[in-house]
Measured scan of single mutants.
Amino acid sequence: ENVVSAPMPGKVLRVLVRVGDRVRVGQGLLVLEAMKMENEIPSPRDGVVKRILVKEGEIDDTGQPLIELG
């Protein structure tokens, strides 16, 4: 899985990584606010952040691509 998608609709509060960062499975990639709760979205695998497809403050839909890993 190279693309991390939104598991729920919500607002992107914080992006915790930058392009080029090495990430490990379970590491937080970004924080979504949904139903007044903050949810940290973890990396599904080890890899390198290739692209960040959303910006802080954006509203996303379920299934929307958020981050691409390489």
Rank of each mutant, 00 (worst) to 15 (best):
E1A: 13
N2K: 09
V3I: 14
V4G: 03
V4R: 02
V4P: 03
V4T: 03
S5P: 08
A6D: 02
A6E: 02
A6Y: 07
P7F: 06
P9C: 10
P9E: 06
P9V: 07
G10D: 02
G10I: 05
K11M: 09
K11S: 05
K11I: 10
K11D: 03
V12N: 01
L13N: 06
R14C: 10
R14W: 01
V15I: 15
L16I: 06
V17T: 01
R18I: 10
V19S: 04
G20D: 05
D21H: 05
D21E: 13
V23G: 02
V23F: 02
V23N: 00
V23Q: 00
R24T: 13
R24L: 11
R24N: 10
V25N: 08
V25M: 13
G26E: 02
G26L: 05
Q27P: 00
Q27H: 05
G28L: 13
G28I: 15
L30C: 05
L30G: 01
V31Y: 03
L32A: 00
E33S: 07
A34M: 12
A34H: 15
K36P: 05
M37L: 11
M37V: 13
E38V: 10
E38L: 11
E38I: 11
E40V: 15
E40G: 04
E40M: 14
I41E: 02
P42H: 11
P44E: 04
R45A: 11
D46V: 06
D46G: 08
D46W: 07
G47M: 03
G47C: 05
G47W: 02
G47A: 10
V49Y: 00
V49M: 00
K50H: 10
K50V: 14
K50N: 09
R51V: 09
R51H: 09
R51P: 02
R51L: 07
I52T: 01
L53F: 15
L53Y: 13
V54E: 03
K55E: 12
E58L: 10
E58N: 10
E58G: 06
I59Q: 10
D60G: 15
D61P: 09
T62N: 07
G63M: 08
G63Q: 08
Q64F: 10
P65R: 06
L66P: 02
I67G: 01
